[in-house]
Amino acid sequence: MTVPQEDLLLVLRDLVAKRNGGPVVDDAPLETLGLDSLSVIELLMAVEDHFGVRIPVEGIGAGDLRDLRSLAAYAQHQMH
């Protein structure tokens, strides 16, 4: 299944905005959005539920955890 990265970003942005109760900047460091490792896994699980796919998280690297944009890129790569 191929999902455009912008669609993934939109879903991630919505999820974080709901969680934090406010607007979210795509390139803000994840730490400043209050996202720790557990919440990143939970976010990816929510993306899985949304698109009905499985995203392996064991191989995630530090570069994938910079901001929502890099996380969306990781999710898209793993969905291929």
Binding site: S37, V40, I41, V57, E58, I60, G61, A62, D64, L65
Partner: peptide
Amino acid sequence: ARAMGASLS
């Protein structure tokens, strides 16, 4: 830590 695979935590 990252090189050893601790990117998640």
